[in-house]
Design a protein around this nucleic acid. Structure first.
Lengths: 232, 232
DNA sequence: CGCTGTGTTGAATGCCGTCAACGTCGGTGG
DNA sequence: CCACCGACGTTGACGGCATTCAACACAGCG
């Protein structure tokens, strides 16, 4: 089936591609649906494909040998992911789990070198994606080295709402289900500490919590917390 | 001046390149010397060039707005660095400082797209470099999330000696000057904690310290510490 | 010979993880 | 429809690890 071009027009991965170029890229792709909590790919598995998220939200999870889980990032609509092939890897370094029902474009790795040659701007977009992930990850290392838990969690929340926020009359809401445990795994802390801090922030009117739900009611106030600028 | 080809034969960045291909790459490069403690490039500066380290050791340092420093990595001989252009960045995200006197190959960014087209395997090597740095950085996030300071420092030392170790009769020595403060900035801790742990390990016969000097005398024993497997 | 950078060590504080208990929501099956 | 159960969330108490504060030792260098 031919994909509706309007679905993918305007995505960064397709920026600067004319109609024929887009078609060349899309011709090799297959669209499929992943229900909530299903795995798109699995850590350590042979990397056979790379992906683009058309709709939904996906979390990328790394599990340590001892069984600790860390959420490396959330993938938003329009982003490439699982591009192990572009990094010269043969296995996926993490697992990708649908945070909600998702629609995903899938390319076989075999298409990569061909696409790279014929549609350079598509490959360039993939490389830039990797570059900005490296940036973000290094920024995260800095955060974990220099900031305390409270600032890290505040930053993490602000990052999520800026990328995946949905405006409501209460404030900006994270538009996928996220548990305290999830936030803990993003920030290298425990769900207890996250819960305590969210409760405290709720008392201060900065956020509003719910079951698998977080609404930032005062982004500016939360920014003050994130930069450790408030009087205690 | 024409570079001696033997200097760069066998580097990963030149793997799979025939003589003419190598020459095409080298023709655009310039070799220069950086004395100890000098900056090859500076965080935030306009990225005008990319580099390859021919000899010496370079540390890549990120400084936060509040002035905290973090050592993102050490560059070893034969590695590409400062390849902002391959990530689509216009400024350097970190500073590069010579840990010892260094010899560096420099390409102007303008050469990038040309080289990418004419010598694809050179570009591929650069992309793979970025890919493995992303990997390593994500592994570091996992470490910082799940392990305590003692294990992190042990891992960091083992990583350094495996990449930049020099065999001596005492054990494996880090072959560039490194302070306790440096180790602290690599692992997100303080020089005090590093000093305490190194002293303790010296008592146990695992390492041997000196001024800006660390020798691992019992790599296997240190590995046991790194994996938290020892009886206290 | 003093100064600066580096390293060591002790003592006190405090952040945050751990342990524990309980509360609440939502789905499921009888 | 209701009872049950598991997942998720909250809160208190405690303790340990690592930072912080402080003082000192030592080496290299001008």
């Amino acid at each position: 089936m031919t994909l509706d071009r309007s679905l993918i027009a305007g995505l960064p991965a397709f920026a600067g591609l004319d109609g024929p170029g887009r078609d060349a890229v899309l011709a090799r792709a297959q669209s499929s649906r992943f229900p909530k909590d299903s795995e798109v790919f699995s850590q350590g598995a042979e990397a056979a494909s790379f992906f683009l998220l058309l709709a939904g939200h996906i979390r990328v999870v790394r599990t340590s040998p001892e069984g600790h889980q860390v959420i490396a990032r959330y993938i938003n609509e329009g982003e490439l992911f699982g591009i192990a092939v572009a990094m010269g890897r043969s296995t996926y370094p993490a697992s990708a789990v649908a945070a909600v029902d998702c629609v995903v474009l899938t390319w076989p790795n075999a298409a990569w070198s061909d696409l790279q040659a014929r549609v350079p701007s598509f490959a360039a977009s993939a490389y830039q994606t990797i570059g900005s992930r490296l940036q973000e990850t290094q920024a995260q290392v800095m955060e974990m080295s220099t900031q305390q838990v409270e600032q890290r969690i505040a930053h993490a929340l602000l990052r999520i709402v800026s990328q995946s926020g949905r405006k409501t009359d209460q404030g900006i809401e994270i538009d996928f289900p996220i548990t305290r445990q999830d936030i803990a795994e993003m920030t290298g802390t425990t769900l207890h500490t996250v819960s305590r801090l969210l409760s405290a922030w709720e008392d201060e009117g900065l956020v509003k919590g719910g079951r698998q739900r977080v609404v930032v009611t005062d982004p500016h106030g939360l920014m003050v917390v994130a930069e450790n600028r408030r009087r205690k």
